[in-house]
Design a binder for these strands. Structure first.
Length: 272
DNA sequence: AAAAGGACCTGGTGGC
DNA sequence: TGCCACCAGGTCCTTT
């Protein structure tokens, strides 16, 4: 679930519902996430008012007068804004309860996500300071990737999924962007030329922007419904389509494993 | 410095 | 129906 578009959608939902709200109470039911949820969080957040709500990569940052809440949804996490009395489901680990009995509820079956606190400058936090450029900002250019990739022999797919290079390109969109740019996912990053990187960057931006637009559809029912509708499935070209005919009509989509992740490509559209 | 593999977790699916 | 192997939208950490 938590692709960049859904994180953006989640962030926007939080902005919409919880902007400038004050925390009444924090309930930690399960502190064992990727890193332990700080025990002091209930005391630290009580009576604090949200100042800003931002996304950086796939992190959602909530800024309060006394510090910053740093959250990541991992593979299976979600935030929902709900009435506080909504019954607890399995894996509802954290409630941040605000005035008006609105509750920001963190749910995460696999617990690969995190909720951390810092009272220092958030951009200097260990997890944030190492992040690469935002894909939808002007910092991501073909030239940027080209220069960064010169010493890299890893597969191009791993390279564009490396959050220290560029944030927010997950497994699905890496596959899709490489397909649209006609680049085989196993190509060593240093073998990809400047013109190819220009084309790839254009497709990364386009594919993410389109998905965010579709994520905007999810935003409408953000506070009510489940929000898990697989809304972008129909726009996928290769992801999860092994054995199916490519839209080019010249070949069948293949699946290989790169860096322990499923990778899909069309051998006709994406020659080695 | 870069690359490869393991680690962290639970749930769903498909085979036998 | 039960058991089991395998897979999953992420990314840090350790080892080579």
């Amino acid at each position: 679930m938590p692709e960049l578009p859904e994180v953006e959608t989640t962030k926007n939902g939080i902005v919409h519902n919880l902007k400038s709200k004050t925390v009444k109470q924090v309930i930690i039911r399960q502190p064992k996430l990727r890193w332990p949820v700080p025990e002091h969080l209930p005391d630290t957040l009580a009576q604090q008012t949200i100042q800003t709500i931002q996304r950086r990569g796939k992190y959602i940052l909530l800024t309060f007068p006394n510090g910053h809440l740093i959250s990541h949804l991992g593979m299976s996490g979600s935030f929902r804004v709900l009435p506080t009395q909504t019954p607890i489901k399995k894996h509802d680990h954290i409630d941040i309860i605000f005035q008006d009995d609105l509750c920001l509820r963190y749910h995460d079956p696999r617990r690969f996500g995190c909720l951390l606190w810092t009272d220092q400058a958030v951009e200097q936090h260990k997890l944030i300071s190492v992040l690469g450029v935002e894909p939808l900002e002007q910092d991501l250019t073909g030239e940027y990737l080209y220069k960064k990739s010169r010493p890299k022999r890893v597969a191009i797919k791993n390279f564009i999924m490396d959050s220290h290079i560029v944030v927010g390109v997950g497994n699905i969109y890496a596959n899709e962007a490489l397909f649209l740019a006609n680049i085989h996912p196993s190509t060593p990053a240093q073998k990809v030329g400047l013109a190819q990187y220009e084309k790839l960057v254009a497709h990364i931006k386009q594919v993410l922007a389109t998905a965010i637009q579709q994520g905007g559809t999810t935003l409408r029912d953000f506070t009510n419904a489940d929000g898990q509708a697989g809304y972008f499935q129909q726009t996928l070209h290769v992801y999860g389509k092994a054995g199916e005919q490519c839209s080019c009509g010249r070949a069948t989509i293949e699946k290989i494993v790169i860096g322990q992740r499923a990778s899909y490509f069309c051998p006709a559209c994406q020659p080695i």
